[in-house]
Amino acid sequence: MTEILRTGASGRTSFASLTGSGQLVLGVLLVALCLGISAAAPQFYSEANIIAILRQCALVLIVASGMTMLIIAAEVDLSVGASLAFVGCVGMAVLNATDSLALGLVSALAFAGAVGLVNGIVVTLLRVNSLIGTIGTMMMLQGGVYLFTREAVQNHHQLASFTALGAGYWGPLPIPVIFAVAIFALCAVTLRFTTIGRYLYAVGANERAVRLSGIRSARLKLAAFVVTGLCVGVAGLILASLMNAGQPTAGRGFELTVIAAVILGGTSLTGGSGSLFGTLLGVLVLKVIDNGIIILGWNQDLQMVVPGIIIILASYFDLLRSRHHA
């Protein structure tokens, strides 16, 4: 018996060091990247560039906050990229039609939330594997957005408040960053301190045990899908504001960047473990790499290759980590 306890105890320390070291490695990597890029290209540290990076991070982080919750609950949403484009078009079209910022925002958020709800229903009620089910909704959204509009929906009224959504500042900080920080904080607090957060981890760790404990796991997952959808809504509006139009082609590959960031941040695809802080680090690392590619004058198409490779590597490390403790 003592022997069992001893191995158990050592297992714990090594796990703590591993997760801890995972985020530490990520932090060190981030610092190294920043130093390396700025050594090669001093303009990396210009105010304009840092703000550009933060803005880029904001979009990803907003969606990644919801996605982290979803992946912790052992589900995933691949439709976020397609939804991002559609949301922008819908928001812009309503804005054009009504000349009302409030209506535009509400309709875009409602649309995005509805997409999340549909994803949630497909996964919980129809019991379709979320990877496949959300590929299905992704295709429907991709086709649907072209049926909705052939070309970009231009911003007709040029409402200042709408432009501010993407391009505005609050003090020294871009407004998208404020949104990202707020959503990040909200999700982080939910995951860390509330019953809902604890149940999300529990569902991801063992859904049957959660059901047997009298907790309605399907509703919980449904909520996580809707929250992710709403996050996409916010990000889609900001993107439309930044591009001053609703672009049906926007957001291609966005889902992969988001998932790569989450997995890179140490959240396990098998569910039940992970943290939003890790996701934040993951987003920063990916976006600094992206920015480095541009600033060093490398081919921008590398931006597509990098998350592809990182997602495979990160899931391999995730697998190693779980095997190590099996």
Binding site: V122, L126, R127, V128, N129, I132, G133, I135, G136, T137, M138, M139, M140, L141, Q142, G143, G144, Y146, L147
Partner: peptide, 13 residues
Amino acid sequence: LVITGAIIIAAVA
């Protein structure tokens, strides 16, 4: 594209 997406979901369900 839309129909194909719906078909995937329906078939798996």
